[in-house]
Every structure is written in structure tokens, then in C-alpha cells.
Design a protein around this nucleic acid. Structure first.
Length: 264
DNA sequence: GAAACATCATTGGG
DNA sequence: ACCCAATGATGTTT
């Protein structure tokens, strides 16, 4: 299977036909089995959308007030299958105290598995606990490379979250840690079981919310890439809700740019 | 009708 | 001021 060789291989969507594929697929439904409001089917400025990326894949703009995301299928199924398997072999998840979180005085296991990888010396803070990033594995480096080429952005860190089935989930939060580069997008790669992903505007939370803005609901497919651009993460919370009918695992990689010498 | 889902209030130490 | 997860209540959807 040499086409999965790490680095230096031509990607299947990068061949001569890519431009035609790109033109042909103006509108891809993210959630064909579900006719809901999930994605706004905007297709006004395809050219503008694609122009900013050096590595053309068919992007789909997801927009709302203060929300700006781009969604694309980055890896074809075969390759996504392979990458998932390799990550299952390579990724070392946090255990023990590092896999626990304290909420209202009680200690819980986080309802998923987490790992942090990145450039040497990078530290990620989750819920008050600092985690030293492990060195990149070959597969993570390969995916990092694909994401960088596709988005035109560089990243020096990835948070890996593994959801063993639909019971595993992540509560509503923002990725607005102080150590993150505020102008850099966050790139979220999904492998394995497709899961619902929900954005909620911060001003719609709670009983006496000041605004009435519809949530933005996506289904993150196997092999997909969701780019969350600024200022999405300052105005919108997101969550990965439990879905009891999902029986298979999902691995999510969120690539970030962490400021190295953050003198605050 | 039952199960799943959605939303809110409640719980506090760091 | 905010974050993090579970639980119970209540309402809605499938």
C-alpha cells in the first residue's frame, strides 16, 4: 500500500482532474439522511472560497453571525480508513489523573480519551491541568502535512480526542485558551464514526438569553476537515453531544497554533 | 408509547 | 468571571 507512504506522495485529489471535480461539486449535502437545517447551502463565491487555499479541495462555507467555517472532505475513504487504523496503533492517550476532571468538587473521568502532540516543549492546558505535548507520530505528521498544504496555514500542536462510541462526548465549550494564536484557525480532522457537532452562539445560552440565534448543526464525516476561522471561537460555543445509536469509535484531531514564547 | 434528544438549573474548587 | 461533567426535571422529536 505504498500510496500511504508518509510524506512525499501525490494525493489523489491533487491530480489533474481536481479542478473539474471542484467545479462540478458546487453543493454537497453534509447530511443527506437528514433534511434539517444543518448547513446553509451557500454557493455564491466558489472562486473566492477556493482561491485562498493553495491545495484545492471542494470547500463548503459555513457562516452565521460571527461564525466562519470551511468544511471539506480531505481524505477519501480508503485513506481515511488507513489513517484511522494507524492512529489506533500509534496514539498514546492520557491516563490516570491526567484523564480526570474535577467539576463542582467531584472528580470524573473525562467522557472520551485525550492526547496531545506537537513541537518540542509545547504545553497545553485543559481545565487547569498542563499537558506536555508528545513528539509527532509519523501518521500525525502526515495528516499535519496534508492539513497545512490544504489550508495554507501552519500548526504546531494537535489535540487528539477519541470517542469510543456514541456515549463518549464533549460538553459545550470554546477553544479560546490564552496560549492559542488568536488569528490562526483551528483545523479539525475527523476519522471513524460520523458525529453530530453543534455550534451555539454565546448570547443564546441560559434562560434569559439576550438573542435568538439558531444553532448551527453539522455532521462531521469520516475523512473530513472543518476549519474554524476567527472569530468563530470567541462568539460560538461548540459541543459533540452523545448519540446513543453510534456504536463505532471516532478520532478527532484539532490542529492549533500555540504561541511559543507567550509572555503574558 | 417509548426512547432519544434538547434545554435548563443545579452542584465548587481552581 | 469562567470552566468542566453529571444528574434530574421538563418538554419535544422520532
Amino acid at each position: 500500500m505504498d500510496r500511504f507512504v508518509i510524506r512525499g506522495q501525490k494525493r489523489s485529489y491533487n491530480d489533474g482532474a481536481a479542478e473539474d471535480v471542484l467545479r462540478a461539486s458546487k453543493k454537497v449535502k453534509l447530511d443527506p439522511g437528514n433534511d434539517n437545517e444543518g448547513i446553509k447551502e451557500e454557493e455564491a463565491d466558489e472562486d473566492a472560497d477556493f482561491a485562498e487555499f493553495s491545495h484545492p479541495v471542494p470547500w463548503h462555507k459555513v457562516e452565521a453571525e460571527g461564525l466562519d467555517c470551511d468544511y471539506a472532505l480531505l481524505f477519501p475513504k480508503e485513506e481515511a480508513d488507513h489513517l484511522f487504523k494507524k492512529l489506533e496503533e500509534e496514539v498514546v492517550y492520557l491516563t490516570g489523573d491526567e484523564a480526570k476532571v474535577q467539576v463542582f468538587g467531584k472528580v470524573y473521568n473525562v467522557p472520551r480519551k485525550q492526547a496531545t502532540y506537537g513541537d518540542e516543549g509545547l504545553i497545553y492546558t485543559y481545565s487547569g491541568v498542563k499537558h506536555l505535548a508528545r513528539r509527532w507520530t509519523p501518521t500525525l505528521e502526515y495528516i499535519l502535512d496534508a492539513v497545512s498544504k490544504t489550508t495554507g496555514h501552519t500548526f504546531n500542536f494537535v489535540l487528539v480526542n477519541r470517542y469510543k462510541d456514541g456515549q463518549d462526548h464533549m460538553g459545550e465549550h470554546r477553544d479560546d485558551e490564552r496560549e492559542l494564536d488568536p488569528v490562526s484557525p483551528i483545523a479539525s480532522v475527523s476519522l471513524g464514526a460520523a458525529r453530530d457537532f453543534i455550534f451555539r452562539h454565546r448570547d443564546t445560552r441560559g434562560k434569559y438569553s439576550s438573542r435568538n440565534i439558531e444553532p448551527v448543526k453539522l455532521k462531521l464525516a469520516h475523512g473530513s476537515l472543518l476549519l474554524m476561522n476567527t472569530p468563530t471561537n470567541t462568539h460560538w460555543y461548540h459541543s459533540l453531544p452523545a448519540r446513543k445509536k453510534v456504536l463505532m469509535p471516532r478520532i478527532n484531531l484539532t490542529f492549533r497554533r500555540i504561541l511559543m514564547d507567550s509572555k503574558k
